[in-house]
């Protein structure tokens, strides 16, 4: 097993799938400022995906670049967390998904800035600035929606209830994660869970939302076990490069 390739795919695929989904909000936001914000966050995610996937391609030594990895892999070859595949739904669903992810991305990127690999550390430094901004945005909206009206409170509480069981993938501490930590170029995400939990608790306290009763977590994304949605999402995303395999764009 090529742990480095696997690990970088996880980072890249999370960002790619979130970016792909956030892009769908362009032109459909609840207010112009949020249209711009969601597209901007999506753009950052695509930028991060490109950096991680380019590195993953090099780590694989099979000549694949960012586009080969994004557009010519089948769903079971993707390593994104199931959380990232959850549908955009309404604005509250998207914000809750983003908050749960951002609260993980911030400590992740912070830890990766200490990577023994200069390039990983450099990408992490750039990503850390972005994810800090993303978290500020998603957190402020969790508070607005949680505290706002009865309707918004009920809606975003429901989003949270539905999404929380899917966070497990983010913190999987398997062989790949252990190898990354042992060799010093990555971090074992299992160690990030405490920071994530405390970020969640802070947000809950400020928004008046509550933590739903614990339910078993859905885990599988890092091993290529996905939700039903991923195949549809990739079919749409990959249509042109798959239809015209010889074309350059």
């Amino acid at each position: 097993m090529n742990a480095r390739f696997e690990y970088l795919l996880r980072l890249g695929d999370d960002a790619l799938i979130l970016g792909q989904q956030l892009g769908l909000w362009t032109g459909h936001g609840p207010v112009l400022e949020e249209d711009i914000a969601l597209t901007n966050i999506g753009l950052d995610q695509i930028g991060q995906a490109r950096a991680w996937l380019t590195m993953a391609g090099r780590a694989e030594h099979a000549g694949r670049d960012e586009d080969a990895l994004a557009f010519h892999r089948n769903p079971e070859e993707f390593r994104c967390a199931q959380l990232c595949q959850q549908a955009n739904g309404h604005f509250g669903d998207t914000i809750a998904r983003q908050f749960l992810f951002d609260a993980y991305a911030v400590p992740l990127h912070a830890a990766l800035t200490k990577s023994s690999d200069d390039e990983i550390a450099a990408i992490a430094r750039k990503s850390a600035k972005e994810s800090a901004y993303h978290l500020r945005h998603s957190r402020v909206w969790m508070v607005r929606l949680g505290d706002g009206t009865e309707e918004s409170h009920a809606k975003v509480q429901e989003s949270l209830d539905r999404l929380l069981p899917y966070v497990g993938d983010l913190f999987v501490g398997d062989d790949v994660a252990e190898a990354a930590a042992r060799e010093g170029w990555g971090v074992n995400p299992a160690t990030l869970r405490d920071a994530w939990e405390s970020e969640l608790d802070d947000m809950l306290a400020e928004s008046g939302l509550h933590r739903p009763e614990a339910v078993p977590e859905q885990i599988g994304g890092r091993r290529g076990i996905h939700t039903e949605k991923l195949s549809y999402l990739l079919a749409e995303m990959q249509v042109l490069p798959r239809t015209y395999p010889d074309a350059q764009w």
């Binding site: 609840p30 604005f91 508070v143 706002g148 009206t149």
Partner: peptide
Amino acid sequence: AWDNGAWVREAAQAH
């Protein structure tokens, strides 16, 4: 887009 976002704008205002 505008109608589906009404509850979001109302929530921001109320908050």
